[in-house]
Simulated assay, not measured.
Amino acid sequence: MRQRYLALLSVFASLPAMALTFQTRLESIEWTVEGDKFECRLTQPVTDFGSGQFVRRAGEQAIFRLNAYNAMMGGGSATLLAAAAPWQPGRGDINLGTVRIGSGNVLFNSSQAQAGRLISGLIDGRSPVVRHSSGDGRVSEVRLLPVRFNKAFADYQGCVAKLLPQNFDQVKQSQVGFPGGGIDLDGPAKARLQVMLEYMKADPTVNRIELDGHSDNSGNRLTNRDLSRRRALAVMEFFKANGIQESQITLRFHGERYPLAPNTSNINRAKNRRVAIRLERGAPAEQVAPQATKPTASATS
């Protein structure tokens, strides 16, 4: 291991003479893991610069983020590399493409594919490197080192295992269908609602639900409106049975008025038999003034 450390110290001898490199001294390198049900972060601080950070939100793969105390790199683009370790001769750097450098504290967010290859590289002893060339020929680099990575990555994977199935952007709008034409929730519908319910229970600021029931045009207008109402009520009853209060739910029903697809085939009509669900953020439940026990309901014909 000592030989690897010494080799790392000489890694910059081949860099251009004008290169400015930011990295943490070997004896000071640390990886930290933080997170909750919504997001996990695996971070290496970079001395005098900021940090390199893998961020994985619920329902997504990780991205790599470069954070800076100041706008040290300027604008433009930079090259992202999985750089070979100096103790592994004959292995070249892997060019992962370019990233666009911003002007704030977060200089860039990589793609998920780039982050995945950086993680694989770290496991294999490679270093994530961000290389930026200015217009006057100056080169600056930020380098993370793989020292102590494997232990931290195991902790990070433990955090990832506890993430929710989806994040708020993914779960805030959804819909359930009634392909058979009735009013009962089928297995896929219940599974989709369960994901939304799980998120609401984890995030108390998401405590409002809007339900909009719809039908196809198979019946007359009054029948279709009633079907759309009963479908929305079926979804409401699911949430109520799982601890959501009626006062948190707004219910509307529209009959055949807003089709997703023209009612010209059985497939299209099945698409139109649905309830759209939208989750909203509000004040925590204990701060909300008491409301009527019945859901707000409105109908449009």
Rank of each mutant, 00 (worst) to 15 (best):
A161G: 11
P204N: 14
M236I: 02
R273T: 13
K240T: 12
K162A: 14
E198S: 14
R274F: 02
R221M: 09
R231W: 05
E198I: 01
S247M: 14
Q173H: 14
G243I: 07
S174Q: 14
Y258A: 03
G219H: 06
F239D: 04
R230Q: 12
I267Y: 08
Y156C: 03
N268T: 09
K201P: 02
G187E: 11
K240N: 15
G213W: 09
L193S: 08
D184E: 05
P259H: 11
N272E: 05
S228E: 06
E256M: 13
N220M: 03
F238N: 00
R273F: 09
D226Y: 04
G177A: 13
R273M: 12
S174C: 13
F239V: 05
I209D: 01
Y258V: 00
G213R: 08
K201V: 11
L251K: 01
L164E: 03
D169T: 15
I267L: 11
A261S: 14
V206Y: 00
E198R: 14
F178N: 03
D216Y: 11
R225P: 06
I267W: 04
E237V: 07
D184T: 12
L222D: 13
H214I: 08
A241Q: 15
Q194K: 12
D184I: 05
L233Y: 08
R230D: 07
R269G: 09
P262E: 15
S218P: 06
Y156T: 03
F178W: 02
L197Q: 07
R229L: 11
P188E: 02
F238L: 00
L260E: 09
F168M: 06
N224E: 12
D203L: 00
T205G: 01
A270E: 15
F253C: 13
T264L: 10
R221Y: 06
A161P: 08
L164F: 06
G182A: 04
N272A: 05
K162V: 13
I249R: 01
N224W: 06
D226P: 00
L260K: 14
M236E: 05
A191F: 00
T223G: 09
Q170R: 01
G182D: 15
G187H: 06
Q170Y: 00
D216C: 15
R269S: 12
N224S: 11
L251T: 07
N242C: 12
R257K: 14
T250I: 13
L193G: 12
N224F: 08
R273A: 06
